[in-house]
Design a protein around this nucleic acid. Sequence first.
DNA 1: AATGAATGAGCCTTCATTCAT
DNA 2: AATGAATGAAGGCTCATTCAT
Lengths: 187, 187, 187, 187
Amino acid sequence: MARPLNEDRRNALLIAAMELVAENGLGASTADIAKRAGVPNGSLFTYFETKSDLLNALYLALKQHLTEQVLRDLPTGDDKAALRHLWTVWIDWGLQHAPRRKALAQLSVSDQISDVSRRTASEFAGPTVELVVRISATGALRGAPARYIGGLVEAAVGVTTEFISAHPENAEAIADAGFEALWKSLS
Amino acid sequence: MARPLNEDRRNALLIAAMELVAENGLGASTADIAKRAGVPNGSLFTYFETKSDLLNALYLALKQHLTEQVLRDLPTGDDKAALRHLWTVWIDWGLQHAPRRKALAQLSVSDQISDVSRRTASEFAGPTVELVVRISATGALRGAPARYIGGLVEAAVGVTTEFISAHPENAEAIADAGFEALWKSLS
Amino acid sequence: MARPLNEDRRNALLIAAMELVAENGLGASTADIAKRAGVPNGSLFTYFETKSDLLNALYLALKQHLTEQVLRDLPTGDDKAALRHLWTVWIDWGLQHAPRRKALAQLSVSDQISDVSRRTASEFAGPTVELVVRISATGALRGAPARYIGGLVEAAVGVTTEFISAHPENAEAIADAGFEALWKSLS
Amino acid sequence: MARPLNEDRRNALLIAAMELVAENGLGASTADIAKRAGVPNGSLFTYFETKSDLLNALYLALKQHLTEQVLRDLPTGDDKAALRHLWTVWIDWGLQHAPRRKALAQLSVSDQISDVSRRTASEFAGPTVELVVRISATGALRGAPARYIGGLVEAAVGVTTEFISAHPENAEAIADAGFEALWKSLS
DNA sequence: AATGAATGAGCCTTCATTCAT
DNA sequence: AATGAATGAAGGCTCATTCAT
């Protein structure tokens, strides 16, 4: 087994990177990440060959964490209910894990994240894409590329989460209205 | 009077910054920016006190450039036609000015851009926000905050522009479908 | 008359330099000095060819100011009374003009002050040196170089002023004791 | 264990800093210090977090070096002999180690040296302060604060060393006269 | 494998002085 | 003479990565 001896350290590094990226952006130094993880700075590079590798691994870990939440208990049969579930859980994930959300936002726009990583991540989300494509099949976006539709949904979730996070007063109403708008745009 | 500040140089610096931010992200060095602008490195700081000031000025300049295009010839009377115009011109701006679009995307997510800058920029876009709010007045988003609705529209434009830029084959069809989806979500 | 047109500006620059040197040391920038003086930065160099010239002029101005105070009303006839007057007035000058004292202390140890300036300044103080030499004529320091004796007195004043400034509680007692010690060491 | 910190390098940096500070004042650049020490510029900061830390460490090292010399073989029993020993050794230290003396003089007046450093250094010199306080117990300075008396002695040594260094002709006579003056002022 | 010191290019900014206006 | 923009060489410090131990 080629797995590195100490998986805990790897995780500690990913968590430290997530926090520091959320706080300070991608400029967070490897030395600071290692220190926050309680790991010697040189050891970071036995777990991740380069800083870029660490960032890509973090991106994938965050996407996976998010996708797991969203896909768990995704209703089948009723597409509107399923979309509503996806919408709600996705937004909640962002609200409950602000550092994860912020780090993911930073990483998503970064040019450090490779196409491979992006493609891998979007494969995690396969079932959700299938869902929105199916919903769109008779709407304005029928025939549009799945990645485009997926991108629109992701963007709508992102804007909604940011907004609720900044103005939590009417969280419920915003989330409801946003969902209805999304549903109308797709179906 | 002594030598007056040279506006051409200021513009050259903004343009150089725009290009390098588009190419390399916000990590673009002030030395490189100055060199690309054909200006001595120290002189950058006679035009912008700090790198952050330069970035904020660039953000505002890009937003203003974009807004001018979008607002020029905005139809009045027919809201759907107006939204269509906004949609088309905005996307075209992004396609025709890829460096500007990329730089603006980087800046928009950066924590270097102050709230003041963001607010100032959103004032530029006042009329477009009024438009989308008016359109939304009877739809799912009726009553939602203007900034939220504006954010959704901006995000949809962004995703569409990115997608078309990466897959120009069906530009027309994508733009049309995206517009219809947007219209349905708002109205 | 070759005197520069505006003597007020020259003085404003000297005062600004004094304050900033007292606050920040010799690293005070010419631009800051000019700004504090309410003078355009380039104009500083029409009054003083170099920063070093400004510093030397400041040194001389401070020494002159100090010497004027000390020599005014210096008693004649009774050497001990004269030394006591010198001691008291000199210390008071330092206490009442803390910025001047601090600036002068910085300048005195600086390698920016030329030998010419130092010699000129010590000529101002001629009468006081004569006094301490006369007092020393029969003491342990009889025959010692005047500049050495002067240096000892100046150092004692400096230490005493610093100490009282930092611990004003027993100003009187310290000044008295210091004077007696000085008197004993010389006479 | 990884490579241990190399004490020789640390010393080389301190020595280089001492020389350059003696020659050029506190403006000596970290790059020049590192170069003179034969160390890469970045490595300076693995030994001293900031330039200020380096300067404080240098101050302490010089004070310690001086104190060691002065305290070695300090006579006990005869206070006048002890003071004479202190006086002579202290002056000799300054004459034989001109760069150290000059660097220490620069550092002593600098605002870069923290109160902690100053206090630590004055603890090194505890026994000498006890000596001068004991000597003063029945003189003009009886009851004066130890730090004030110590300051007076230090200033007298400094002036004397400077003077002899600049005029070595009558070194012996000056030192003798200065000592007698000091003894009279204290006892 | 683990450690943490070592590296040196690069970063943003400052500054005394000059000079076009 | 007066102004203040222009200059470019430093300055102190950071950092991803390497490598001696």
